[in-house]
């Protein structure tokens, strides 16, 4: 037996145990009796929505406060909500909460923009062979905890996906080339068993007189969405994407994405969507072309 080695090994174990113990002890709460003590939301917590950009976007504002009895700050806290499968994922809500203060109440004021056009476009893309429209909704959240000499030993992020069935009994009476150059058109009819979300969005657009709207880009792509009453409680959504000359709407949209994102024009008003959302939107339009059987 080598005494020197044994002493060194004991010293290493002691140092590691000491560092681990101090880090854990500093982070574990001592006066916790229920989940509310770890994390509770104040009663004045509210979520407000308002329509902006001429109905093309919805602004969601969250106000409230979170109280915690954790002995250390929760850092880098974020909540993201995405819609769509990987590859055509649209961010519909993002909240960078930052720090939730230790043993304190943290006020949260977060707002995000929910793009209506993307939800409408998904209504057409998401139809499966059984006539259901399912929209994958992904909630991501993450945080860092247990500070240890400037880094965090716990750094977790979780993506929870829920496949929301927003409508059933959907048929696709029309698909193929639409109106305009290099165009594609798809029309679906929902037999009335749509979820409140789709019903609500469709209804609010119809009520606002926006049952027929066109998004255009500066280089000539246009995407027209038309909501029609098909009688018998059925609603129809028709999407027509048109390009210019030989170029399809997909090519033009790709060309139109700039440094800041993609600028779309609706009813004479410009609004810009982020690069990530633009990529998801372009992917949706590509799917539209494929569904219609037109080469994008």
């Amino acid at each position: 037996m080598n005494a020197g080695k044994l002493v060194a090994q004991i010293a290493v174990v002691a140092i590691v145990v000491y560092f681990t113990y101090t880090a854990v002890v500093a982070a574990v709460p001592t006066d916790v009796h229920s989940m509310d003590d770890i994390f509770s939301v104040t009663e004045d917590f509210s979520v407000n929505t308002e329509s902006i950009d001429g109905g093309m976007n919805m602004k969601v504002t969250v106000n409230g406060a979170v109280a915690t009895k954790l002995p250390q700050n929760l850092e880098g806290v974020y909540i993201d909500v995405h819609m769509g499968d990987i590859g055509k994922r649209t961010e519909i809500a993002h909240a960078d909460i930052g720090t939730i203060k230790a043993k304190d109440t943290t006020v949260i004021n977060a707002s995000s923009i929910v793009p209506t056009y993307a939800i409408m476009a998904y209504a057409v893309e998401g139809v499966d062979s059984e006539g259901n429209i399912t929209v994958p909704l992904v909630l991501s959240f993450g945080f860092k905890y247990m500070e240890w000499y400037g880094v965090y030993l716990v750094d977790l992020g979780l993506d929870i996906k829920q496949n929301l069935q927003v409508a059933s009994g959907v048929s696709m009476p029309e698909k193929g080339a639409g109106t305009g150059d290099s165009s594609a058109k798809v029309k679906v009819v929902i037999d009335g068993s749509a979820s409140e979300t789709i019903d609500g969005i469709a209804k609010s657009l119809v009520d606002a007189g926006k049952d027929d709207f066109t998004l255009t880009t500066s280089n000539g792509a246009s995407i027209n969405v038309k909501i029609t009453d098909e009688g018998g409680g059925k609603a129809g959504i028709a999407i027509n994407a048109a390009g210019a000359g030989d170029k399809s709407a997909v090519d033009l949209l790709k060309d139109a994405v700039g440094e800041d994102g993609l600028t779309l024009t609706y009813d004479g008003n410009d609004f810009t969507i982020t690069k990530e959302n633009a990529a998801a939107f372009i992917e949706l339009v590509t799917e539209l072309y494929k569904t219609a059987g037109v080469d994008p």
């Binding site: 991501s140 880094v151 965090y152 030993l153 750094d155 977790l156 979780l158 996906k161 496949n163 069935q165």
Partner: peptide, 14 residues
């Protein structure tokens, strides 16, 4: 209809 799609672990601390 609910699944966990991603579990991200930051490795800086580790």
């Amino acid at each position: 209809g609910v699944s966990i799609e991603g579990l991200h672990v930051g490795l800086d601390g580790l």
